[in-house]
Design a protein around this nucleic acid. Structure first.
Length: 428
DNA sequence: TCTGGGGTCCTAGGACCC
DNA sequence: TCTGGGGTCCTAGGACCC
């Protein structure tokens, strides 16, 4: 059994890099990508980071700075980013099928069975390959545990002489500890905003301090996660490597509205649309549910915040958009209060059941023929929407209102997923 | 005026059972 | 006055991730 060895391939400033792919004029300029409703900063170019714009910053607080410094803003274009992401994933899968897609911009590769003699050179080759074929800059961290691989990739971005590649496994202990000592505790994978102050209060300020924390103490301070983190920092792989795509365990779809509303019809349209989108994902996941939930809420940032929720149950597991939406709209009626200004709606599908294991209820009078009719109807809708574009076939209730939809004033064209938006090239 | 969206896992406490 | 020990299941809340 070979020693575990992982590479983390991490796209640099991913959403910004995707926008720059079609706007090379934005190279070397400060660029940010904003979340739904152009609310928060979710990606920053290095130049934007240098201006002191933090991740997650509310856009409205920085409008002045954006204007003053000429920061170019984009509304998030997730269709585009998803498309670029899958191109990169296929490049990585060609290197090794032992690839775990961790997020839209990060993948782990299991290197233990690959025949690599010079890891630095290998990392540089992966980097230039992805840059050339997908147009996206990446960083590569190589280490015997995933936590160390994450740390190595992050360090390789911060220390210019590493040129985007850091292999920790082959270093002398003193050298790798130097990199750990330069990594602040809040930058360790698994340490978030609550644990970081707790650890600092215990004189644990860097990744190296955490590496040397006795295991029982780590357990006391942070539970099982803490012990795992310490082991991983010491080079013992604890976290599972899961190359095969993991089926989702729950699905959620929620939106903050473009504007507040008190109207039931608007909420009904939002809940129906969110349910339809979640049900598409449910069917892609080959799953069914017997429970669905919803909540509608007022703005968290205003006094008198209210959140109203409801749950529905189905005697027979379903993935039928219409059935789910009808039940959730009924449930909405039971909790709706006309005097509130709603700002957000969400639907939840917890506890997904594989659609191969359907348990029909003895007490239920659902006709089995009806079940297959529903499946066929959903298949037809999904096929049409795949072929002719999302929302080609939709529920009438979705059209009651569009006013809840978030604003995206600054979105880029769908360069890769819409014929009308293909970039044009002219040769003079 | 204006603050995202979508997930996973762990833990503690209560209900219930023998 | 005394009032077990252990197990399971469920839920809510907390913490983390990108």
């Amino acid at each position: 059994m070979p020693q575990p060895l992982f590479a983390l391939v991490d796209c640099n400033n991913f959403f910004v890099s995707c926008e720059r792919l079609f706007r090379p004029d934005l190279e070397n300029r400060p660029v940010v990508v904003l979340s739904s409703n152009d609310g928060c900063v979710v990606a920053r170019s290095n130049e934007a980071k240098a201006l002191g714009i933090p991740m997650g910053a509310p856009g409205f607080k920085y409008r002045d700075l954006f204007r003053r410094e000429g920061v170019v803003q984009f509304s998030a274009n997730f269709e585009l980013y998803g498309d670029i992401s899958s191109r990169i994933i296929s490049l990585l899968t060609a290197i090794t099928p032992r690839t775990e897609v961790y997020s839209v911009d990060e993948s782990f590769l299991d290197l233990s069975a690959l025949d690599i003699t010079d890891y630095q050179a290998w990392g540089r080759r992966v980097r230039s390959d992805i840059r050339q074929k997908a147009g996206i800059p990446v960083s590569v961290g190589i280490a015997p545990s995933k936590t160390l691989a994450k740390l190595a990739a992050a360090r390789s971005k911060k220390e210019a002489e590493l040129e985007g590649v850091l292999e920790i496994a082959g270093l002398a202990a003193g050298q790798s500890d130097l990199y750990l000592s330069r990594t602040a505790i809040e930058d360790v994978w698994g340490v978030g905003r609550r644990l970081a102050p707790r650890l600092r209060a215990n004189n644990i300020a860097t990744a190296l301090d955490l590496k040397h924390l006795p295991l029982p103490r780590a357990g006391q301070l942070m539970g099982v996660h803490g012990r795992q983190m310490v082991l991983e920092l010491n080079g013992t792989a604890c976290l599972p490597f899961t190359p095969e795509h993991q089926a989702h365990k729950s699905i959620m779809r929620g939106r903050t509205f473009g504007e507040e509303t008190g109207s039931f019809a608007v909420l009904e349209a939002a809940i129906t649309s969110l349910t339809a989108a979640a049900a598409v994902r449910l069917r892609q996941n080959n799953s069914l549910v017997t429970t669905a939930g919803l909540f509608v809420a007022t703005s968290r940032h205003k006094p008198g915040y209210r959140r109203l929720e409801a749950t529905v149950h189905f005697a027979v597991a379903t993935a039928d958009s219409g059935q789910l939406a009808a039940a959730l709209v009924q449930a909405l009626k039971t909790v709706y209060q006309p005097n509130l200004k709603y700002y957000r709606a969400a639907i939840l599908l917890p506890e997904l059941i594989p659609n191969t294991a359907v348990q029909t209820s003895l007490l239920d009078d659902t006709d089995p023929k009806q079940f297959t009719a529903s499946q066929r109807r959903m298949e037809a809708i999904d096929n049409l929407n795949d072929r002719y574009g999302k929302q080609t076939v939709r529920y009438a209730a979705e059209d009651l209102s569009r006013s809840w939809q978030p604003k995206k004033h600054l979105i880029s064209p769908r360069y890769t997923s819409d014929w009308q938006s293909l970039p044009e090239v002219s040769l003079d």
